[in-house]
Amino acid sequence: MATTTCEIAPANPVEQFLRTDRIPHIWCPGCGIGTSVNCFTRALIELDADLDKIAVVSGIGCSGRVAGYLKLDSFHTTHGRAIPFATGLKLARPELTVVVYSGDGDLFAIGGNHFIHAARRNIDLKVICINNFIYGMTGGQVAPTTPVSAIATTTPFGSFEPPFNLPQLAEAAGATFVARWTTYHVRQLTRTIKEMLKRKGFSFIEVLSPCPTLFQRRNKQGDGLAAMKMYKQLSKTRNGAPTAETAIEQGKPIIVGKFVDIERPSYLGSMEQMLSSRLGDRYVHVENLEWH
């Protein structure tokens, strides 16, 4: 009798990017953060990226945990400060592709000032913002992105603060690449992440993502699947849309796509140009400031 061999299921192609010894992860069923990580890692595969030269920096919160699950040089910093940490990392070691992966509260409430200044300077950082409209890790408090009238634990009768329109904010501050997708748009998101990783300059992708546990439950919006259906139904792709028209408002379509893609001198490029023109031969250019 011939022996039969069982074919072992091939490993998930993104497994090589994950710290599998840290699984199970902390994210809830239906959460979109994992979907975005899948898109990010698939973008790395498709780019055939040098994984030793990619660093991921996160702040604090559910999305802040991304750094901890990625098997790359990864830094889980303090609340709101992923961008200034990433700025120091990039300026000390320009050879790295530095990705900032964090949430809407982290990047735009406590970290808002750092975001606008890094965008203004055009530091070559790739910022992926998971926007779930709420503070998830701390239990569902109002965020700078929470829609008006939505229930949060600290706005128990409905939020009455106007939220930020993140693409408009990013463009106004100087971001050279601005896009928005939802976790329903996995192919588009993967493609846009690829595009972002290949280019230079301060780049920003907002990823609308379900939070069934702490946002949707209180706002009677169902589970993760319901959010996917809602994204599918309400999203309207408008590449190149003026960011002033991308605010998320009740009863209106969610505008997704790539809105901004321009070139502007980078911080490091401008620094080198200024110093070498003013100092001539006295200027000492060192690429990576590695201490030996």
């Binding site: 200034p84 300026l91 000390a92 200044h117 620094m271 100092l279 000492v284 400031l289």
Partner: peptide, 29 residues
Amino acid sequence: PTVGGRFIQMEDELASSIAILGAVWGGAK
């Protein structure tokens, strides 16, 4: 600039004090 390195004036001291930590993990003193 004539020694070989970089300085950045950050937006506040929260940013300065973590930018240096990023730089150290990138290899600098």
